[in-house]
Amino acid sequence: MAEVTLSNVRKSYGAVDIIHGVDLEIRDGEFVVLVGPSGCGKSTLLRMVAGLETITGGDIKIGGRVVNDLDPKDRDIAMVFQNYALYPHMTVATNMGFSLEHRGTSKAEITERVKWAADILGLSHLLDRYPRQLSGGQRQRVAMGRAIVRDPQVFLFDEPLSNLDAKLRVVMRGEIKGLHQKLKTTTVYVTHDQVEAMTMADKIVVLSGGKVEQIGAPLDLYDRPANQFVAGFIGSPAMNFLSGTITPQGFAAPGIVLPLPDATLGSLQRKAIYGIRPEHFVLDDEGVPAEIVLVEPMGSETQVTMKLGETLVTGVFRERVSLSPGATIRVRPDLASIHIFAAEGGQRLN
């Protein structure tokens, strides 16, 4: 186990900058998730930590040791790839023990370590099979087994659940989290799925365009996103945004005036973005009018698309309500959960 530190890490391909100086501290035993949309540089950053990509500038430290110029094999890391990268011509047992074999470990110890890992992951009955004879979930477990068998300082996961169906993804998510809780090995996990990030991480790093947008605990990011990008990325259904102007009377959006969370904001008198999560609308006769466009009952909740002034927004209501398209309801934004962002740059204002 070890801490991982990235200091002003940069990556360029020719004149094109891909990673723009990332600073990140990952504590010993922490589970950190790098999340962001496709092309944001999260996989590149992980591969730089692994040593599969060179870095253009900055320092990467693993366990206090600068590893910038070390080969992947000398960094004491293990990596799980998106498509598992199991050696097709080797059995499960050989796949799992392969790295130990090349590090001069004795056969007896390899057998013992493979058995230990197989027991943890429920693979004991599959050790003689080839990867082609396994299901997607089993392959994923073998890939994890190959990583843990070596007892590395850091685990790196590169979108390991992307190739699984939705149901299996939920199961494997739990297994990876459980494995981390058992082994307490420092883990860096890359995903584009914000639900995965929220449910698994001790700490989330949100990336966009090769820059860190925000680092924090999952609920901190959810409750107090630093900017409009993070606010829109974290949470499902996504946060609603209304463009308008802050006035002393409230937030003037097209066709409607909404209450502000903090009266002192009224003095700002500037263009801004009003952010509200779908579950933060409350049905209230004293609220603002909203015309229902679409009703989607989900069982545990009802998702409603409605017109607030001239802007379409989504609301999620826990209570069983009878709503129909075309009707007008009255909703009140939960003022404690309103986010105000600057119209230019999207930085949080409240």
């Binding site: 599969l52 990596m79 790839f81 498509n83 990268a85 050696y87 011509h89 790295s99 090349h102």
Partner: peptide, 24 residues
């Protein structure tokens, strides 16, 4: 990814060729 996994597993270029690429 197969070669990258082999690099992480500790193999050099020639061993990757002999142990991974050639058998496949």
């Amino acid at each position: 990814e197969l070669e990258e996994a082999a690099r992480v597993d500790g193999l050099g270029r020639f061993k990757i060729f002999r142990k991974i690429a050639l058998p496949l």
